[in-house]
């Protein structure tokens, strides 16, 4: 297990190095920092002196080294707009986004597994066909339409749920502003997480259904029937465990989609998370914030994919991590 984590850390570091380079290039090449700092009312000589002083005339690799050195110390620059370290700005928005993604994920799991399994066991049932039709719909309708529709009916027509913002939050250990512990926060969470779930669930329903139908044809399932095992145990232990292997892998990959959709969802519902922050940063050309966001997303990717690998190895004994058992 330790050597596995060590190897994963090395890989993660390599990935992050590449991301940091891209991020540096963005900071370096997008716009002119000197102009951002002093505007246009400065002479060319002063401008060049400042460039020299800031090290902007040094070779790119040296500049990158400096960037990396600062990054390791937790300094990824200062946001032009907030006049605060970008890391702090993003960290203050992290809880909102994580809670939204988590809520969406819970909904996806709660919807996709039962529906996918049902559709696989009873492929000809009318309900299965309805589920499949619904999933095609979910796959083809973009999230901003879903979100606007949900908002229109639940918030405007029926006035059941709030349409924007995060509502009330409570502080957890003074570190985390959470909306999960009060009614108002949960109500605000419902529509955005539902929109996200609506577009993410279909692919999992389809995947689980197709994979499970395959698994149900396999010899070991037939053998389980021949042993006189009960149907629920065959479906939910014997078949589902095997079905989940590719689903876990795809789940890890779908994380990218989730990040992308979170940006859109947060913009529509004015959810004060990282995605909304990123959109604002782009419109304000807040370059340090943009590049920090990229690094953050990279970290999230690396961490989650490592978690996915660990979960996969727990479900599938054939890829037990060496030295761990």
């Amino acid at each position: 297990m330790l050597s596995f984590i060590g190897r994963r850390l090395l890989q993660a570091m390599f990935v992050l190095l590449i991301i940091s380079f891209v991020s540096f290039m963005i900071q370096d090449k997008m716009g002119d920092p000197v102009r951002q700092m002093v505007g246009l009312s400065v002479t060319l000589e002063q401008r060049e002196a400042l460039q020299q002083e800031l090290g902007l005339n040094d070779p790119m690799l040296i500049q990158y080294g400096r960037f990396l050195g600062r990054a390791i110390q937790g300094d990824l620059g200062t946001s032009y707009y907030y006049k605060e370290p970008t890391i702090d700005v993003i960290a203050s928005r992290l809880p909102a986004t994580l809670e939204l993604s988590f809520a969406a994920l819970v909904l996806v799991v709660l919807l996709a597994i039962p529906l996918g399994v049902f559709a696989a066991i009873h492929p000809k049932n009318i309900l299965s066909r309805a589920v499949l039709l619904f999933s095609t719909l979910g796959l083809s309708v973009p999230i901003f339409i879903v979100a606007v529709f949900l908002m229109y009916f639940f918030a405007i027509e029926w006035g059941l749920l709030p349409s924007f913002g995060r509502g009330e939050t409570t502080s957890v250990f003074g570190l985390w502003q959470s909306g999960l512990f009060n009614r108002d926060g949960l109500q605000h969470l419902l529509l955005p997480s539902l929109s996200l779930a609506f577009v993410l669930t279909p692919i999992f329903i389809r995947l689980i259904r197709a994979e499970m139908m395959d698994v149900l044809q396999s010899d070991y399932i037939r053998y389980a029937w021949a042993k006189g095992i009960s149907a629920p145990r065959i479906y939910f232990i014997h078949a589902l465990k095997n079905t989940m292997l590719p689903v876990i892998t795809v789940g890890g990959i779908q994380l990218g989609t989730l990040v992308a959709y979170t940006i859109l969802t947060e913009s529509i519902f004015q959810w004060p998370g990282m995605g909304l922050l990123f959109m604002d940063a782009v419109t304000r050309v807040d370059v340090p914030l943009i590049s920090t966001y990229l690094i953050f997303v990279g970290v999230i990717f690396v961490v989650t994919n490592t978690l996915v690998d660990v979960v996969y190895s727990l479900v599938n004994p054939r890829v037990r991590i060496p030295g761990y058992s």
């Binding site: 396999s218 010899d219 070991y220 399932i221 053998y223 014997h238 465990k241 095997n242 479900v315 004994p317």
Partner: peptide, 13 residues
Amino acid sequence: FQDPMVTLNPVLS
């Protein structure tokens, strides 16, 4: 069954 390699469920002990 015929093929012991695929008769037992691979993810259960």
